[in-house]
Simulated scan of single mutants.
Amino acid sequence: MAEGDRPKALFPAPPPFYSHFTTAKLTHLRDLRRQDPNLDILSLPTELRYLIPPPPLQTSTFNAFGTSRSLDAPPQTLASLEVEQLYPDHASIALNPQAHLISLARTQLTVFLTLIGSLSQNPAEGWEQETKELDEITMNMLSLVNGYRPHQGRETLILQMEERIERLKAEMQAIRLARGRVEEVVGELRSGGAREDLPESAERSDANDEMARRKAKQRAAWSALNAVTAGNSG
């Protein structure tokens, strides 16, 4: 197969240094750090340096894809981006943006179809206005989604807490049921182990039969107790 005929991968290959992350090398690095807690990274071989993550940021400014960014920078808004807001400015919209998102999505589709029609008629011109409108609509949709995220996070946390409470209630109910069953089994053990006062002659004559019956009751009680505990653990 020629070089140009080879099929292209859907995703780029991982960075080449991923092959250094092996169990043997991680164990070797752990041993070196155990021997010297103040290990100098520059003294390590190159393949071991990849295994050490970079230190955390000391400042709030960092570079990402060639652009300087700051963690202290305020979140961008449509006004700061000089984009026209296409939905009403009301606090209730942040809690229920679905209707406006659907409306903007339909408008986006309409503008996109208009753009396709304009390009089919005049590919060199007639696309700037529609492209600008698509950008504005997309930025407005992102603004609505970002404004909904705090409410979404709170509702997700509430749902998780409610599920945990229901799970704990179910576990407590199962413990109560198991406790009742264990108390019944213990009661059977006590009643089965109690022996009546018999004359000395009768005890001597029926000693073997009484012992056999007692052991049979105890085995049955212990079998029931094991069944209850096994069912509770399952």
Rank of each mutant, 00 (worst) to 15 (best):
R179Q: 12
L159H: 15
E136S: 07
H100D: 08
A64E: 14
R181F: 03
A170Y: 06
I175Y: 09
N226S: 15
L86H: 05
A2C: 10
D206H: 14
K25M: 06
I102G: 09
P7R: 04
T59R: 03
L134P: 00
P12S: 04
W222G: 12
L71S: 06
G66V: 01
A202H: 15
A13M: 14
L86D: 00
R190P: 00
F62H: 06
A221F: 01
V228G: 05
I116D: 04
I52E: 01
T61I: 07
H100A: 15
T138H: 05
P45T: 03
E210V: 09
P16R: 04
R204L: 10
E166D: 13
S43Y: 05
A91E: 10
T107P: 03
P88F: 00
R106I: 07
R213T: 05
L225M: 05
L177G: 08
L104S: 01
E196N: 04
V186F: 02
M172W: 06
A224D: 10
L51P: 03
N96T: 13
K215W: 10
R33H: 06
T22M: 04
Y50T: 03
M172P: 03
L225E: 02
T61L: 07
P199Y: 03
A207N: 14
Y18W: 11
N140E: 04
L189A: 01
T131N: 01
L95S: 05
A216R: 10
P123Q: 06
N63A: 15
G231E: 15
H100P: 06
G180H: 10
V186D: 03
Q58N: 11
G180Y: 11
S68G: 12
G187H: 00
T23P: 12
L48F: 02
R106N: 10
P55I: 07
H28A: 14
S223N: 15
R164N: 11
E210Q: 15
L32Y: 06
R49N: 00
S68L: 13
I158V: 12
T114Y: 02
Q76K: 09
A9M: 13
Y87N: 02
P53F: 02
S80C: 02
R49G: 00
A194V: 01
T67K: 11
E200S: 11
L189Q: 00
R154C: 05
D135C: 09
V111Y: 01
Y50H: 07
L42A: 14
G147D: 08
S191D: 05
P74K: 01
Q173D: 08
R69K: 08
R219P: 07
A24K: 11
E163P: 12
R219M: 13
K132C: 08
H100F: 13
L119C: 04
P97D: 00
G234N: 15
E200K: 07
G192P: 00
A221W: 01
T77V: 09
K215Q: 13
I175F: 12
R106Y: 10
G153P: 14
L57R: 11
P75F: 15
R154K: 08
Y148T: 03
D89Q: 04
I137M: 01
P7N: 05
F11N: 10
E136T: 08
L48K: 03
M139K: 06
T107Q: 09
E84L: 03
A224S: 11
G180P: 11
R176E: 02
P56F: 12
P75N: 15
L134Y: 02
E196Y: 05
N232S: 14
I102Y: 07
E183N: 06
A194P: 00
H90P: 14
L198Q: 05
